[in-house]
């Protein structure tokens, strides 16, 4: 049944994202055409392009930036709206009476949210590549990469592959944790009989503040127990980087587990649709 939930979730959210992607790609191409045909020397201080063309490019560039911002905001809005509206408003009467496990509801929403977050990132990257096409060659890229990885290896004694892998793991767990934090805030919000959206927003703020508080305390405890000296005495930059990346990943995973099981508990036992 998870597969079917995923399918319908993809349909429901795709109809919002796909048009934005299309508009963004179209606008990127227009930008690129205006730039390379109309004012190829736009970024060159010494030569002056045609003022009308410069004006047109400025406008299309502004539109492009606006759509990129809109896409980022929309990604967040859709993540919130799909979880809240589809499960905790009247639509919940349909969703929660489907012969489907509560777990699958959360997982399907989460996976599709992850998917769109990643796809949005990829699409924006692609548009930047298109815009900057011609200003660099493939060799520039590989050269820059090998230089960077050499530096990483000589200074951190760490292979670039491992570093990227660990950083990616940290980022993914970070995204999952932040999505699940939105979910648990919404689930907590629906425990209230009135003003559920405000309550959900409040729950989100409270959780953020609480986490900040806990981390600050933890940071304070480090010098108290002289951990910073032990840490510095290790002083191997490799270990410091490793500790930071994997430590963050571990904390993210803990948060993910707490948020996930909290959300599931509320949805199973404390559901109270209006």
């Amino acid at each position: 049944m998870l597969g079917k939930l995923l399918k319908h979730e993809l349909k429901a959210s795709g109809r919002i994202f796909l048009p934005i992607y299309a508009v963004l790609l179209l606008l990127t191409i227009v930008n690129k055409l205006v730039l390379s045909l109309g004012c190829p020397d736009f970024f060159n201080e010494e030569t002056v392009s045609h003022p009308v063309m410069e004006m047109i490019f400025a406008i299309t560039l502004l539109l492009y930036v606006a759509i990129v911002v809109a896409l980022s905001v929309m990604t967040l809005v859709v993540i919130v709206q799909r979880f809240y509206k589809n499960l905790f408003t009247d639509e919940g009467y349909l969703m929660f009476t489907l012969p489907v496990k509560t777990r699958d509801h959360i997982i399907s929403k989460l996976l599709i949210a992850m998917l769109w977050t990643c796809v949005s990132g990829v699409v924006i990257t692609i548009t930047i590549l298109i815009l900057s096409w011609g200003t660099f060659t493939w060799m520039d890229v590989t050269q820059a990469y090998s230089m960077l990885s050499q530096q990483v290896e000589t200074q951190l004694h760490l292979s670039m592959g491992l570093l990227i892998f660990e950083a990616a793991l940290m980022m993914i767990t970070e995204i999952v944790a932040s999505i699940l934090m939105i979910y648990i805030a919404i689930a907590l919000g629906q425990l209230f009989n009135q003003h559920r959206i405000i309550a959900a927003f409040g729950a989100y703020v409270v959780i953020s503040v609480a986490l900040q508080f806990i981390f600050s305390i933890a940071m304070l405890l480090i010098p108290v127990f002289n951990l910073d000296y032990t840490f510095l005495s290790l002083a191997d930059p490799t270990e410091v980087v490793q500790w930071f990346l994997n430590g963050t990943t571990a904390i993210n995973l803990l948060l993910c587990a707490a948020f996930y099981f909290g959300t599931q508990y509320i949805m199973k036992n404390k559901l109270n649709l209006e």
């Binding site: 009247d90 639509e91 009467y93 349909l94 009476t97 489907l98 012969p99 489907v100 649709l273």
Partner: peptide, 12 residues
């Protein structure tokens, strides 16, 4: 849920 068919008072 597989064997119960439910019509809520709400429009879902």
């Amino acid at each position: 849920k597989k064997i119960v068919s439910y019509l809520p008072e709400r429009t879902y």
